[in-house]
Each structure stands twice: as C-alpha cells, then as structure tokens.
C-alpha cells in the first residue's frame, strides 16, 4: 500500500492539531488500524519513524498502534462475534490473515461476514 503517504497525512493532521492547541511538540500519537484496512502495521510504523526525523516537533514522539480483533456476523445464526487475528511480524505474509479459518463460536459455521474493520483512525494526540 501507501503506508508512507498515510503516515505523512496523519502527521499533517497532528500538526494542525498542534497549531490549534498552541502546543510545541508531540509526545504520543495513537492510531487505530482496522484489521481489514489492508494497512501493514510495520510499514506504517516504519513510515512514521522515517518521517518524524524531518519534523522537529515530532522528534520525541512515540507512535502507539491499536490493532483490534476483527468482528464478524455469522450468516447462519446471526451471532456477532470477535475472533483473534494472528497478527505477527509475518503480517506481511498475506496467508497469515486468512489462516485463522474462523468459525462461529455458536454454530461453528464458516459463513462469517466481516463487520467494519476497514477503518484507519487517529485516536489521540498527547502534546506539550
């Protein structure tokens, strides 16, 4: 994907907030990457680390990534469930995402339809 440009866009949003609040530097940024967003967490974090070097107010900023488990609705019995995704350093390996071969905890059906999960959200900024 374009994790680098996503990280760049996120930093622009943070800079605007910094100006808005009259703060000078960013200490912490929390970003939520939905499990179905297609964004590779490692690449996003890498993009942030590279780009922050060229922005003085980001020098000491720490990026926190929230990686929530995916939610599904079972098309057989209607139950809504959240199942863990095996996210790891091998997230770049596309097979690891589908390898969960998820089943409904109630009726064991594999007909699980994803609920949301594509979101990319700037959650919180700490600044001073």
């Amino acid at each position: 994907m374009h994790e680098m440009s996503l990280a760049h866009g996120m930093m622009q949003q943070v800079l605007a907030l910094l100006r808005e609040h009259g703060a000078e530097r960013v200490t912490d940024v929390t970003v939520l990457l939905g499990p179905f967003s297609g964004v590779v967490a490692e690449s996003f974090a890498f993009g942030f680390e590279v780009l922050k070097k060229s922005e003085t107010c980001f020098q000491d900023a720490t990026l926190h990534l929230e990686l929530p488990d995916p939610h599904y609705r079972c098309l057989e019995c209607g139950v809504e469930t959240s199942l863990p995704l095996t996210r790891s350093a091998t997230f770049l390996d596309p097979d690891c995402e589908t390898s969960t071969s998820s089943r409904c905890p109630v009726c064991a059906s594999t007909r699980l339809s994803p609920l949301g999960g594509a979101e990319l959200i700037l959650q919180q900024v700490r600044m001073e």
Partner: peptide, 15 residues
C-alpha cells in the same frame, strides 16, 4: 504540566 491530551477519533483519510 503543559501536557495536553486531545482525543481526536478522526479518519486518517477524512479529507
């Protein structure tokens, strides 16, 4: 303590 915590909850691709 000059620290400010801003809860944003804004889409990265909001624009």
């Amino acid at each position: 303590n000059k620290e400010k915590v801003v809860d944003v909850h804004e889409q990265l691709l909001a624009a």
